[in-house]
Design a protein around this nucleic acid. Structure first.
Lengths: 153, 153
DNA sequence: TTACTAAAGGACTAAAAGGTCTCTTAGTGA
DNA sequence: TCACTAAGAGACCTTTTAGTCCTTTAGTAA
């Protein structure tokens, strides 16, 4: 459904928020190892997230990535659109041409509610919201996002 | 949402069925030009569709592509899965790991109904069904699938 | 003020998707 | 049976996505 880059970005950001809520600022090495993604690629992706202003970073010892708590929660959609563009949310899901509300293709009215549901989900759900859901059940963290460190071993 | 290959396959097959219903067997050149796809690539894709047994072909003069009317209608899902695999219908839409009904990730229960809706749509809708919808309004054909030949000009 | 740490930047490589080209195979009709 | 037509096959090229590696920049702390 999404590119690897998008997937890794979402997982990394949720991990960062999760650690922030424990007063930690994780670095690239830790993030990549915990969410099981290639380290250099993850570094590049997080660089982009910082440039977009979605997350912040500090260099040097005790550096790492963190969310500015003064900012609003970050909707998944912002991350997704910054990487993939909004074709998933605007175009016809079946790639037919000249398809919109006024000139619908035969699949349009069947697909529109699906697209709207996807849109609603990613527009309303946030990185911080997902992190809270993980926090609600710490064991869930272990099994779902491969976040195995700092808990058991 | 889908690969170009899938998109072109669906468009080509609908066009073939549409012409079949007019007692015609379109060839590659016509198909590619009508649905506005690259000709060689479309040829390769249709070759694969024939190999899969989804559609049939005849060489030589008066050759072209056609559906065996004795066969059951072809669900979009069969075409999609043959090209993309079933990751869209089975995996977690957000690429999180170890996510299933028993071990849901925090997005699972929000995404599951969306995935099910996509699944239902492509499992129930068929190439022949879409062609019938196009036939129901010939002008729609012109505007939606770029099928401009054999009608006006 | 140097040594260390960690992110930023950018050039590079690998793999997959998207697409082209040319030759071969198989039907059809004079 | 030859000329023509149209699909099949496969090698090849291009672009995008995925990923690596190495150097630079910027903080921190002795």
């Amino acid at each position: 459904m999404f590119k690897k880059e998008t997937e890794y970005a979402l997982r990394a950001l949720v991990y960062i928020q999760l650690q922030n809520s424990k007063e930690r600022r994780p670095g690239i090495a830790e993030i990549a190892s915990e969410i099981e993604t290639p380290q250099s690629f993850t570094a590049k992706i997080l660089q982009r997230m910082v440039k977009q202003g979605f997350v912040e970073s500090l260099k040097g010892i005790n550096g790492g990535f963190f969310f500015n708590p003064a900012k609003e929660d970050l909707p998944l959609k912002k991350v997704i659109v910054s990487i993939e563009g909004d074709s998933l949310f605007s175009g016809c899901g079946f790639g037919l041409k000249h398809c919109d509300e006024n000139n619908p293709c035969p699949l349009h009215f069947s697909y529109a509610p699906i697209r709207d549901a996807i849109n609603k989900l990613v527009a309303e759900e946030t990185i911080q919201g997902l992190a809270r859901k993980y926090n609600a059940d710490d064991k869930m963290i272990l099994n779902r996002l491969n976040l195995t460190a700092h808990v058991e071993k």
